[in-house]
Amino acid sequence: MGKLISAILTRAVLGGLIVVALGPILWTVLGAFKELRDIVTPVPKVFFEPTLDNFATILRNPTIRDGLLNSVIVVSAAVLVGAVLGIPAAHTLARHARKWGDDVQFFVLSLRFMPPVAIAIPFIVIYLDLGIYDTLFGLVLVYLIVTVSTVIWLAVPAFERVPRNIEEAAAMEGCGPAEIFWRFSLPVAAPSLFGALVFTFVLVWNELLLALTLAAQNATLPVVAASITSLGKEVPWGVINAATVLLVLPPLVFIGLLMGLLNTMVRSGPK
């Protein structure tokens, strides 16, 4: 009897927790397929005739389409440059910098302490004076603070986990430091590095404040989504839900990767 109760209890706990985590999201996904009259009901409707109108509205709206395109361009450029600059720097910090490496790493970390608004307000004036306000280039430039520092921060431990004897053997064979990095350390660390890049991607994809202040017409998807509420008098909940789904999809693709990254981090000892 006691066993039965504990088994039921387990199931109940399990189900309850998953509802808490996923329920709100699933409800929004349902809402994205509802017509407004199925949303504005006194009793929430679970069964209804699904419609694709909301998604059609979104994809036909030029502002949202541009926002999506801008997001893709800005985020991939910022992550790419972040990787090209950050990964070699992280390798050097992990392997060639003993004395002052910690100070440089702390400087990189301390950029994360900076409140975004303290970056945004001076930059808006500087951008206006330079004439790069509301350009994709300007957004990429300011996002480099986020991407370069995050890539370095996450890639240093990845390179530290590369077994030293691989690099030492290569050095014995007469390989220079650049060759060791490119041919030996980089391939070994690649899986963790990919995880680091994904994490960086999610961070900038989700960013709102900097894009909101430094761009007007050329804004990214979060900015466009945040402004939907002010279209028209009635709050278009179906459309908002569909936009939310669109915004949520790219980061969710990487959930398996995040899980793997967590597993390696926990196994290699918490920082």
Binding site: A21, L22, I25, V202, W205, N206, L208, P222, A225, A226, T244, L247, V248, P251, L252, F254, I255, L258
Partner: peptide, 8 residues
């Protein structure tokens, strides 16, 4: 899942 969601 929740932490991966964009804040917006």
């Amino acid at each position: 899942v929740p932490v991966l969601l964009p804040r917006v």
